[in-house]
């Protein structure tokens, strides 16, 4: 076992722990910071995988991913957060400790179940567990989106889910064709901007970004 391989194993662990922490986090700003750590962990995994496979193109790709996920998107999100003056009192449908517990159980279940599916790894030198972690992250992201009442937290749930798909990509196919990869980043960036604008508009229209308070939402049919 090479040291790089060991390091990527640690990185996978960090990414997974951060995902579970995000599900139990009660400050929006901290959630953004955790998202940065999570993305950084994934970039490290990608970098190690590239180094092990002697793939020189990976470094540029890592740099672009870093620019998008660790710098631009967090800046946009923090800016939005500054504008809407809401940080604390996250309201959820499920209590925070409970949601953390549920996420842990889900993760354990996925780690137990996934190895039986039998999708082989593209890069065999990577330490195991990335596939299970990626699916756990997708599920945790969905869980955050479902249980949080704040529109802003829903965006973060979406990005956790996207990171999960990113991890799945590293695990199965390593890289998409470059033009597609660039397009996805473009979409993510525009998505952050657009959703930021809408969070701001919701705040303006309803004086709250709590989705549950919208009376219109209760309308049937």
């Amino acid at each position: 076992m090479s040291s790089l391989e060991q390091l990527s194993g640690y990185a996978i662990g960090v990414v997974l722990v951060v995902s579970i922490l995000m599900s139990g986090c009660h400050r929006l700003e901290t959630m953004v910071r955790l998202f940065v750590i999570q993305s950084f962990g994934l970039i490290l995994i990608l970098l190690f995988a590239g180094l092990i496979n002697n793939n020189s193109g990976t470094i540029t790709f890592c740099a672009i991913t870093f620019l998008a996920k660790c710098i631009l998107i967090p800046i946009i999100l923090l800016k939005v957060l500054e504008n809407i003056h809401i940080n604390r009192q996250i309201e959820t449908y499920v209590g925070l400790p409970t949601s953390m517990l549920i996420c842990c159980i889900l993760t354990a279940f996925i780690f137990e179940a996934i190895p039986n599916i039998g999708i082989e790894k593209e890069i065999h030198v990577l330490s195991s567990g990335l596939l299970s972690s990626s699916i756990s992250m997708i599920i945790i992201g969905l869980f955050i989106m479902m249980t949080r009442k704040k529109a802003f937290a829903q965006i973060l749930g979406l990005y956790v889910m996207e990171n999960g798909i990113f991890a799945l990509t590293i695990n199965t196919i390593f890289e998409m064709p470059h033009i597609v990869e660039m397009g996805i980043f473009l979409d993510l960036l525009i998505g952050a901007l657009v959703m930021g604008v809408w969070v701001y508009r919701i705040k303006q229209s309803f004086e709250t970004i709590n989705v549950e308070d919208n009376e219109e939402a209760k309308r049937i049919g």
Binding site: A151, Q154, I202
Partner: peptide, 15 residues
Amino acid sequence: YNKEAPVEASWKYII
């Protein structure tokens, strides 16, 4: 239209 119902509809749509 930037009123309550359209804003909510488009948020639902995006998400």
